[in-house]
């Protein structure tokens, strides 16, 4: 049972949330079949720092983004949906920290 810091409500136990998969996957306006398959099905699934979406479904109801290390499950940061993806340098620094 993770303790997830909702950017709107603060830290709450995982059972208040629903995971919504990899973040920052843009829905293409135009796509050939291969690009559309990428959008629908292909995932980074990294072993390491991962940006995913959660919804505080039994709380404020908001979707937000979460940076988590998938080996330690340690949550490094959360930020609101729509906020820009952290830069690679920032992610790299976080990755060291969370290992």
């Amino acid at each position: 049972m993770l303790l997830i810091p909702c950017p709107h409500c603060g830290a709450r136990p995982e059972n208040e949330f629903r995971n919504a998969g990899e973040a920052h996957i843009a829905r293409p306006a135009e796509a050939d079949d291969a690009a559309w398959a990428d959008y629908l099905y292909m995932r980074t699934n990294p072993k390491g720092v991962f940006i995913e979406r959660w919804r505080h479904i039994h709380g404020c109801g908001r979707f937000f983004n979460c940076v988590r290390h998938t080996v330690t499950d340690r949550i490094i940061a959360t930020y609101k949906a729509g906020d820009p993806r952290p830069s690679l340098d920032v992610l790299r620094a976080w990755s060291e920290h969370a290992r």
């Binding site: 109801g61 908001r62 979707f63």
Partner: peptide, 13 residues
């Protein structure tokens, strides 16, 4: 409802 909220909050903002 979750599906609608997802698109409303993150796609059709």
């Amino acid at each position: 409802l979750n599906h609608m909220e997802d698109y409303l909050q993150t796609e059709f903002t």
